[in-house]
């Protein structure tokens, strides 16, 4: 499983990477962690003629708080993000989701930006970005633009990134209110396999336990991770009792559009998407109430 021939060059800066991408034409690609790209190339399913290596570009890597956002450089290693005290404190949902992404060894190379740009329907990071309405900063030789998550994930393995754009930064909005909690549940065959379905929830409760803010998103049950606006509307204002959660998530079957594959057919994914959503809602509610750390 040897890749088809290609040229390689190492980019020294974001500008350099964008320039090389622009000059390289249609068959030029960026390589970051390579954990997805290299196997595809080994199987000759991807055949770029030029690989532009953006590993080690300092300005693309970093984790910081900027006002109400957690800002992560696209080239930040998944393992660094997982181990980051800033992430664990300010956005524990992201740390939780990251712990499901591959293995230690793949996280040591894989990047935050790489996983988002790859946009696998079952991937955890696109799900979190979609849930939190993250902003993706895309740079090309000509411009820098902000792409909202809702526009960024177009379909399975397809994003709004142009072929000459590099995903340099991701800005996750932070929820600052007390009684905010998250839930993340996924089902996979083996511990670190791709999720067959995944659900992420972040919510805020008021003093009486009523839900004042609620985001729910599903992965693996549609071409791109999707927000469940209908379910959110139905649950806002309620106290998210188990009964209510069970009743309101029933409509999920009509909202999702999963693809079957060798591991699970569409009807399985449809059913467990609902289960994951329910569990994620319960976890988020319990965390917000302080009854589940």
């Amino acid at each position: 499983m040897k890749a088809a021939p290609f040229d390689y060059r190492r980019a020294t800066s974001i500008d350099d990477a964008c320039r090389a991408l622009s000059e390289g034409g249609d068959e030029a690609r960026l390589i970051a962690g390579g954990q997805t790209l290299v196997p595809l190339m080994a199987m000759r399913l991807a055949r770029p003629t030029l690989l532009i290596d953006i590993n080690g570009i300092a300005e693309m890597s970093g984790i910081a708080i900027d006002g109400d956002h957690l800002v992560i450089g696209g080239g930040t290693r998944q393992s660094d993000a997982l181990g980051s005290e800033i992430v664990q404190r300010h956005l524990p949902l992201l740390a939780d989701a990251l712990s499901h992404v591959g293995h230690d060894q793949t996280r040591n190379r894989g990047t935050i930006g790489g996983s988002l740009a790859n946009a696998d329907p079952a991937a955890e990071l696109p799900l979190i970005a979609q849930l939190l309405e993250a902003d993706m900063i895309a740079r090309s030789v000509k411009s820098t633009r902000t792409i909202a998550a809702s526009s960024f994930f177009e379909s399975a393995m397809a994003t709004a990134l142009a072929p000459n754009e590099c995903l340099t930064e991701i800005r996750f909005p932070l929820w600052r209110k007390q009684k905010t909690g998250y839930g993340f549940h996924e089902v996979s065959i083996r511990d670190s396999d791709f999720a067959l379905a995944a659900a992420a929830v972040q919510l805020t409760l008021d003093d009486k336990g009523a839900c004042t803010r609620l985001h729910i998103a599903i992965g693996g049950a549609s071409p791109a991770p999707m927000r469940l606006g209908e379910v959110e509307s139905a649950l806002l204002g309620t106290n998210l009792e188990d009964r209510t959660l069970h009743a309101e998530t029933a409509r999920l079957a009509t909202l999702v559009d999963p693809q079957g594959d060798i591991h699970a057919d569409a009807s399985y994914r449809r059913r467990v998407a609902r289960v994951m959503t329910e569990r994620a809602l319960q976890s988020a509610r319990d965390r917000a109430m302080g009854t589940n750390p």
Partner: peptide, 13 residues
């Protein structure tokens, strides 16, 4: 007895 086989047995259509 895979994940999807058992789930289908238990809950499937």
């Amino acid at each position: 007895m895979r994940v999807r086989d058992l789930e289908k047995l238990l809950n499937g259509d």
